[in-house]
Design a protein around this nucleic acid. Sequence first.
DNA 1: AGCTAATTTCGAAAAATGTGGAAATAGGAT
DNA 2: ATCCTATTTCCACATTTTTCGAAATTAGCT
Lengths: 106, 106
Amino acid sequence: MKLEKAASQLEALGNPTRLQLYRILVRAGDDGLPVGSIQEKLDIPSSTLSHHLKRLVDTGLVKQERQATTLICRANYPGMNELIGYLADECCADAKCAPATSKAMA
Amino acid sequence: MKLEKAASQLEALGNPTRLQLYRILVRAGDDGLPVGSIQEKLDIPSSTLSHHLKRLVDTGLVKQERQATTLICRANYPGMNELIGYLADECCADAKCAPATSKAMA
DNA sequence: AGCTAATTTCGAAAAATGTGGAAATAGGAT
DNA sequence: ATCCTATTTCCACATTTTTCGAAATTAGCT
């Protein structure tokens, strides 16, 4: 993963609304959630939500799938894992990190 | 870890210059690096660097220690581990992630 | 064709961020 | 005391982000 890509994903998640949004999608699991339902949960205007959602989709952290008129959104786990992997690598590159969470990848 | 804090750390890392800066500090290991040396590596004005550095320090991702006139900077691994832990938790909350990096914390 | 519901795009204003030169400050050394 | 080096703070400006109402679009239904 390139630094530029990692930075844009981090930036995408580095906004409270978007992080909350991402969280909601993660908790929604494989079923995902239509945009409308997310909007109810977050209680923000649809146009605002649409922008945030676009950001997450553009950086590969969220995937969308049309189902008739509604758009189902799902957290894209591989995208997140890539990012976590990058951070862990950067963090543990030369140094020894206290393995709090990142202990895998033998 | 609160969502707000995670978001601010993510935002801090979500800038190419700052991510690069953090990377440099990680690779510098326990010895850390004086601000001046970082500046040479990044080749940016000192005032700009100082702003970015402050951001990382404020969010707990970097620690600084005075040594006479120079300021030694070090990556704060516990801070990063907390963040990675938060992301892993969010990511794996209900869903099953392919355990790419986050397999610990039995 | 026309209607309704879901979502995005447009346009615009306020706020935050990124950047850097110049001045100020901190910490010794002579 | 004065000076020197390292770093931060001040100030200002350009760019980007955030926000959201209104209009446009998409998709299916009748």
